[in-house]
Design a protein around this nucleic acid. Structure first.
Lengths: 326, 326
DNA sequence: ATGAAAGCGCTAACAA
DNA sequence: TTGTTAGCGCTTTCAT
């Protein structure tokens, strides 16, 4: 069923049908308008968006390239993106890259071939700039602290503010000796998390003590090891953890030592992974506004697509989720 | 950059370029072939898949309509689908319906407009048959026990076998008095889970005792309440739970009563939700082959698209994940 | 071994 | 108020 067949049934030209279908019907008589609409309804006509896209040079679809939808962070992101896109009349093509450059590049190329109007992605600088060279597809980069020359949007989260708030919260709750356990990664987010802790300590005139800092991996083991080490070396009544897994390890160590959480030592995490609310005790943690990141990415991307003037970088605030571990 | 421009640069016709780009170059001289390929490479030419789709009447893209990617079950499904689709050269458009018929219908319509080659979906019978009336898009239905007239594929999981295996496992582990706590839903999966338990009990010549069966909701509360009730009424040394949440409630009740799991009472769940491995004790549970469901759905869908003769229903086996609660 | 031309289904400028 | 027509970028048949 095509527009042409509808036109024949209604004894009009396909141009006329196209006009009423697209609301450009100021000059169409009400009679023909009704007649066409009825036939369209009766025949269950479905417009061919591919033909329309070819003509209009716009597919009303966006691509998203993320490492893995099975990762809770990215599934929430995907949902935020899809919801926002749908509201604006866009569909989204999903691509899982597993953080592999080869897959990123391949997917971006496919998306470009499919003429998506824009791409939201978490990818390496190399993949992005490479594909930008081929075709200047509007893009918004998520959760990656790299800057691409040219007009690629960026959405990032204020990691420093996150640990700053968590540490401040521990101080508010009466902690005097606060440790920090996190990853030794040298990348931006990890550095910012340490910085946020430092800033809170310093601003509150507390001692910044090397013995209270343990940096290794974003794992349960690191949390356990770090806590045990600190307990050996110094007095602590609060630990700001670089992520929730570390917090889980810390709680485990504390339990083994018979130290009550939060009575004796208070704990904060970072990320708010799904299990955090089921822990014993439920974990106070810093949550990234993931869903909102998705929404903002879509807003920014569509603005770029529509060539509106937009701020090309957006920094989102974290949210402190208070539960029973503090 | 279009095929026509490439053609001009190479001093050939666009037909020739098209041929070498699509490997239909048996009759193209090696010289021109090379020349064209070089120019394509040098100019970073990206084929326009939209134009190709219009001509070929195939978009090489699939649609998926699921309630919510943020739900772990569906994110794994989505991943399975996307991986399998990618391997076969298809992209996938993601749609979240929140189980609302209105959204399902709207999304299916959009997918049909975008001329997807097929749709994998978890949706109501009404939405499906309605959209099938408009256009006969190949579809595969997931995790829904409804049958549509016509050629809609179905992938389902053998729920009965799941609880049968779980209960048998409890028996193997020496349980003599096994309870069953589940949902009172009258839908297929719930009924099948009860049936699997019954069958295992009966086949092993154990008494089928109403006091050992508690049916209410798929919630932690039901698990707790059911366990407490059973404990009051009868002796039990094993509980087969209809899902993991119920198992969590059961373990909670047992702990409160000072009854050791798995020493005194062994527990099995169903679903293997993410927290299950972190529980104390880690939960033995029945896992649905979710990722595989996605893969199978894609295989079946593509077979339908290619008009191959295929079995239109596939029943997948569950997997018993043994951990420390049994 | 290569090219001309038609046509996929739609929109829009222009004509009537 | 409606229709004619060209063209979006591609593939493919048929001719050369």
């Amino acid at each position: 069923m095509t527009i042409k067949e509808i036109a024949e049934m209604a004894n009009v030209s396909s141009a006329t049908v196209s006009k009423v279908l697209n609301g450009k019907d100021q000059y169409i008589s009400e009679a023909t308008r009704q007649r066409i609409l009825e036939i369209v309804e009766r025949e269950g006509y479905i417009p061919n968006a591919i033909a329309k896209s070819l003509k209009m040079k716009s597919t009303k679809t966006l691509g998203i390239v993320i490492p893995d939808v099975m990762n809770l962070f990215f599934s929430e992101l995907a949902r935020g993106i899809e919801d926002a896109a749908e509201k604006k009349g866009y569909s989204v093509i999903l691509c899982n890259s597993d953080n592999k450059e080869s897959k990123e590049e391949k997917y971006i190329q496919v998306l470009q071939e499919k003429m998506v109007d824009g791409i939201i992605l978490t990818a390496s600088e190399k993949s992005v700039s490479k594909s930008l060279k081929r075709r200047n597809t509007p893009m918004v980069l998520l959760d990656r602290d790299i800057s691409i020359d040219g007009k690629v949007g960026r959405i990032v989260v204020d990691n420093e503010e996150g640990t700053y708030n968590a540490t401040s919260h521990l101080i508010d709750k009466g902690c005097k000796n606060i440790g920090f356990i996190s990853s030794a990664n040298i990348n931006k987010p990890s550095g910012q998390r340490l910085k946020g802790y430092e800033r809170a300590i310093l601003e509150n005139h507390m001692s910044y003590d090397e013995n209270k800092i343990f940096l290794k991996n974003y794992t349960i083991d690191t949390g356990y090891e770090g806590t045990m080490t600190m307990l050996d070396r110094t007095e602590i009544d609060g630990i700001c953890c670089g992520n929730d897994l570390i917090a889980i390890g810390a709680i485990k160590a504390l339990k083994e030592k018979g130290i009550d959480v939060p009575e004796k030592v208070k704990i904060t995490g970072f990320d708010d992974i799904q299990v955090s609310q089921y822990l014993d005790p439920p974990l106070t943690t810093v949550r990234q506004p993931i869903y909102e990141m998705g929404e903002e990415a879509v807003k920014m991307l569509i603005s770029i697509i529509e060539k509106k003037d937009v701020e090309i970088e957006k920094i989102l605030k974290t949210i402190l989720v208070e539960r029973s571990s503090t």
